[in-house]
Design a protein around this nucleic acid. Structure first.
Length: 683
DNA sequence: GAGACTGGAGTTTTT
DNA sequence: CTCCAGTCTC
């Protein structure tokens, strides 16, 4: 069924699409693989294709499933679709995880979970892993949490069984503790959905028959588990559209497997393949450089971006003596751009490989009073007071949630030590009663008198709240928790950060109140699910401020002016990438992603000396800089730089630079058009 | 049980 | 340098 958008139903305007885009949008049934280069109008094609299915092919909105990796992408598709056709009721557009949770919730019991299961973020999962180690009496010194967590995540995302026996023991125990707490981490959500499909064919069939078309964004970022889920879902109809770019695969370290994209044609031999190579974002000079860099990768599908925009300046290489000089130059340049060319701070972004590099830029920008915005700093939902309150709510929603219990049993301080909390968790698991019940009956536990009293105190506060959770809308419940546990007093220490914490609580309450209309239990569960799956790195656009951002987080974004910084050996490519197979190629893709974020002006910076961890390192220019053709870059040489060869290579600019192609015309190596293409183009 | 102290490690991380 | 986890002391 089609929901009207106001005006009379008229055909979609396909005229603005280029031939390749048009082919992708109007492709009929069967598998479709779209190689969508950076800035090639990928989201536009995806939404137009959905719109075309709805409007021209009469597919019901409820029969379409569109999967993305980020909330931002899902929101973008939905809002553009709404612009095109009006709101589409019944259409499923969401992240893999949010869709998976929707599919799991009704059947969680078939997998040994109870209704209202919690969703654990990285921090929760880390806490649980810590408990796993102490349960198994493993020394957390010999098995540092961070690397362990990363390995666990990667191995589980890859979906196979764990080889190393000791590690398998940890993985199994971790999983058991998750189930015991009735919680799933991000990986569990996908793993469990896959397990559900394998073990319960009738559930799989239910979801298979629910959708006629499945579309996937950023397919190069799918891991093994997601791949198998997709194959299951698209099994009967094979109407699977995948969009991706192997050159922008930068999450292999997290288990993403770009082979899913590269081998799509093996999986679906009847697939139609479309390559989107016309770029609508950047100038040709920027794309030429991007190509020089990415071309060196062996594991990629051949393609080359081109732009109709032959204007614009060439990329500039800044050779600096030190990181401080580099940062100062960038800040000054941003200032000058604003002053002389009227380019606002919001149009500029500074990109770097590691978060630690942000510091120098913050200092340099503050010095010049330039407003900036650091993406990926401390996020709202990660703040202590916010996370505490979420854990209160989670415990009330899911009485088995030991992770949440463990976090808040002693918030505010009421004399429940870590040991005591662990004793409660163990006793609750033993007796099969809930955590709160166990606290209420603390007199039966073998603990010191003070500890038992503290637990009784905790139960006395929480048990009435548990009753309220069943009848109060979530925002009222939140207020009751804050009052009952005297949390405002706890967080307000009279300092300015104390006041900030109170403000955050108020902000939280206002966010929660959006769910009040859903009623008590339903509203609470929906809120907790949404919160868990919507980290706000897709933060609100921050006005006229310079963006400071890592290369990873910059993917999918663009700015008129980009500074790609720290182009040095050991930093980009990162030193540690050398030890991993395919590491260097992934680093090169990172550089490629960085370059292709720029619309008009691209600056590459390279410092000879850099302060890392309090030590001063002397670094050589990144090998990626050597990929640029002689004379391809404009040059800025600052005092003390140590890259004479590189400078010489670019100092002498070839007469007029590379021969410019005529504006508006694809270069000779752009794909040639067939006569039928031309007809569609209206030539 | 809670706060102060010390030592070690410190890429990236959509969900 | 700077953050964190684990240990030590009261």
């Amino acid at each position: 069924m089609l929901i009207e958008s106001g005006g009379p139903s008229r055909p979609l305007d396909l005229g603005s699409l280029n031939p390749e885009q048009l082919a992708a949008v109007t492709h009929g049934n069967g598998p479709l693989l779209i190689f969508a280069g950076a800035g090639s109008g990928k989201t536009r094609v995806l939404t137009m294709r959905i719109a075309h299915l709805l409007r021209a092919r009469g597919v019901g909105a409820e029969r379409i499933l569109a999967l993305t990796f980020t909330n931002r992408a899902a929101r973008e598709i939905r809002s553009r679709l709404t612009q095109l056709l009006g709101a589409q009721k019944g259409l499923w557009v969401g992240t893999f995880h949010s869709i998976a949770v929707r599919m799991l919730r009704p059947h969680a019991e078939l997998l040994g979970y109870r209704p209202g299961f919690a969703i654990y973020d990285e921090e929760d999962s880390r806490a649980l892993l810590k408990r796993t180690l102490s349960d198994l009496q493993l020394d957390s010194k010999k098995h540092p949490l961070g690397p362990l967590q990363q390995r666990l995540g990667r191995e589980r995302a890859q979906g196979g069984s764990v080889e190393d026996a000791k590690f398998a023991l940890v993985a199994d125990r971790y999983r058991a503790l998750c189930v015991e707490s009735n919680g799933m981490d991000f990986d569990d959500i996908l793993i469990n959905l896959r397990a559900l499909f394998v073990r319960q064919p009738e559930v799989l069939q239910l979801w298979q028959s629910r959708f006629d078309h499945v579309l996937v964004d950023e397919y190069q970022d799918t891991n093994r588990v997601q791949y198998e889920i997709l194959r299951s879902l698209a099994g009967p109809h094979r109407n699977l559209t995948v969009v991706g770019d192997d050159d922008q695969s930068i999450y292999a370290f997290r288990g993403a497997d770009p082979r899913n994209l590269l081998e799509f044609e093996r999986d679906f031999p009847e697939a139609t393949v479309v390559k989107l190579e016309q770029n609508y974002r950047s100038t040709q000079g920027i794309l030429d450089l991007a190509h020089q860099v990415i071309e060196k990768n062996r594991e990629r599908s051949p393609k080359r971006l081109w732009s109709a925009d032959q204007t614009g300046s060439r990329p500039v290489l800044i050779l600096a003596g030190s990181d401080d000089q580099e940062a100062a130059w960038v800040a000054e340049r941003i200032d000058r751009l604003a002053l002389e060319e009227g380019i606002g701070f919001g149009q500029c972004a500074i990109l770097f490989r590691t978060n630690a590099q942000a510091r120098a830029y913050e200092r340099a920008l503050v010095e010049r009073r330039i407003r900036y915005h650091l993406v990926g700093g401390l996020r709202f939902w990660d703040r202590r007071e916010i996370k505490d309150l979420i854990c209160f709510l989670r415990l009330l929603n899911n009485p088995e949630d030991a992770v949440s219990f463990d976090r808040i049993a002693n918030v505010p301080r009421r004399g429940v030590s870590e040991r005591t909390a662990q004793a409660v968790i163990a006793a609750a698991a033993e007796s099969g009663s809930s955590l709160l019940e166990t606290c209420a009956k603390a007199s039966g536990l073998e603990l010191r008198e003070e500890a038992r009293a503290a637990l009784s105190q905790f139960a006395a506060e929480m048990v009435p709240l548990a009753a309220e959770a069943r009848r109060r809308p979530p925002s009222e419940l939140l207020l009751l928790i804050i009052r009952r546990c005297a949390l405002a007093e706890h967080y307000d220490d009279g300092t300015r950060s104390g006041q900030a914490r109170l403000d955050n609580l108020a902000e939280l309450r206002s966010l929660v109140s959006d769910y009040d209309h859903l009623g008590a239990a339903r509203g609470l569960e929906r809120f907790l699910t949404d919160v868990a799956l919507s980290t706000d790195s897709d933060e609100t656009e921050a006005g006229e401020r310079v963006t400071l951002i890592t290369l990873h987080m910059a993917k999918g974004l663009e700015w008129p002016v980009v500074f790609l910084t720290g182009l040095e050996d050991k930093l980009l490519p990162h030193e540690r990438a050398r030890f991993e197979t395919g590491g260097l190629e992934e680093e090169r893709r990172l550089a490629y992603v960085g370059i292709t974020r720029a619309r008009q002006q691209l600056h590459l910076t390279c410092a000879a000396v850099r302060h890392v961890f309090g030590k001063t390192l002397t670094l050589r220019p990144s090998s990626f800089l050597g990929d640029a053709l002689p004379g391809q870059l404009d040059l800025v040489e600052l005092e003390g730089h140590a890259a004479p060869e590189l400078a010489a290579r670019h100092r002498q600019r070839a007469e007029g630079g590379p021969a410019p192609t005529r504006p508006g015309r694809p270069p000779a190596w752009a794909p040639s058009r067939t006569p039928s293409d031309r007809r569609q183009d209206g030539e």
